[in-house]
């Protein structure tokens, strides 16, 4: 596995603001962190390849970024099907972006990179339970080429989950997304599954995302809880820009610490964006609520009305 030969550039001095606004000794902290990284590399601990997510605080909490070749757990609120799938898609987009960058650096060509992206195996939950099948037109609009997807559509959740480590033993996949929507399994089962899946993922170098397991399970690389959040900047963007905003809670991270933040994501950027409220008044965000009367037909964009 390759190592990221980058110094820790994620630790920006400007991020270190403690609540009473004292800027602590930046240079000392920076050197210390860099020294730690180098020792870890020399010791062989830092075998994981990390991709920076783009949000500095999150990358710090994750000790570098999203770990490749591991299994990550994503859970969501009861009805947040779109949000969890959307976050999984954002992470897949990140992986794709990283792979393209790596290929570009490896071949050292500035010309157009081949668009040959890796294959993603996605195992969606059975359609009866209210999440629905992946929709290619929406995925294409969000930046994921549906031709890269191989869908494993089987109604029995236990059999689907049991196929996870078999899929993870395939070489050359870009990522695997597995959704579980079945009955509660015991903690013992999850521990065993986590162990098997992590070993298989490490061997083949495939990154996996498991959606729907209970959050309390240990053994996975990271555990996230995703909630959708309101994008108050929506009206300053044009109607065509589709941005999703999520409230992320990193509950568990191997080698990192828990963290909570709000991120936004747009297709094609290759990274998440830290979401800040742009409208601040007295230190509190302004709830920009438009009255319902504003959403009348005359204000809607012309192309939607033309049908």
């Amino acid at each position: 596995m390759q190592r990221m030969n980058q110094p820790i550039s994620i630790v920006k001095p400007s991020d270190f603001r403690v609540p009473n606004n004292q800027i602590i000794n930046e240079k000392k902290t920076y050197d210390l962190a860099r020294l730690r990284q180098e020792i870890a590399v020399a010791d062989g601990y830092n075998k994981r390849l990390h991709i920076p997510l783009g949000v500095d605080s999150l990358d710090q909490a994750l000790a570098g970024g999203l770990a490749l070749g591991r299994v990550h757990l994503l859970t969501g609120a009861m009805q947040a099907h779109g949000a969890v799938s959307g976050f999984a898609m954002a992470l897949l987009d990140l992986l794709h972006h990283h792979a393209r960058l790596k290929a570009k650096l490896a071949t050292n060509r500035q010309t157009a990179i081949t668009n040959d992206a890796g294959l993603i195996v996605w195992c969606p939950a059975s359609q009866r339970n209210g999440a629905g099948m992946l929709y290619g037109h929406g995925l294409a609009a969000a930046g994921l080429d549906p031709a890269r997807l191989l869908i494993v559509d089987t109604p029995n959740p236990s059999r689907r989950l049991a196929a996870l480590d078999d899929i993870l033993r395939t070489e050359g996949l870009a990522a695997v997304v597995m959704e579980y929507d079945g009955v509660q399994k015991s903690a013992d089962y999850w521990m065993r599954l986590a162990r098997r899946a992590q070993l298989a993922a490490e061997d083949s170098g495939t990154t996996a995302f498991l959606l729907g397991a209970p959050i309390g399970v240990s053994g996975f690389e990271t555990a996230w809880h995703i909630k959708p959040a309101v994008d108050l900047d929506r009206w300053s963007h044009s109607a065509l820009v589709q941005r999703s905003v999520w409230d992320l809670t990193l509950q568990r991270a191997r080698g990192g610490r828990p963290h909570k933040c709000k991120v936004g994501w747009q297709a094609g950027l290759g990274q998440l964006q830290a979401y800040h409220h742009s409208i601040m008044a007295n230190g509190k965000p302004v709830q920009a609520e438009l009255p319902i009367g504003e959403l009348s037909a005359s204000k809607w964009p012309a192309h939607a009305l033309a049908r």
Binding site: S85, Q127, G132, M133, Y135, H137, G138, L139, A141, Q242
Partner: peptide, 12 residues
Amino acid sequence: GTAPPRPIRLLA
């Protein structure tokens, strides 16, 4: 060009 908005998951 301008594509109509489509969801990423569709209920059967």
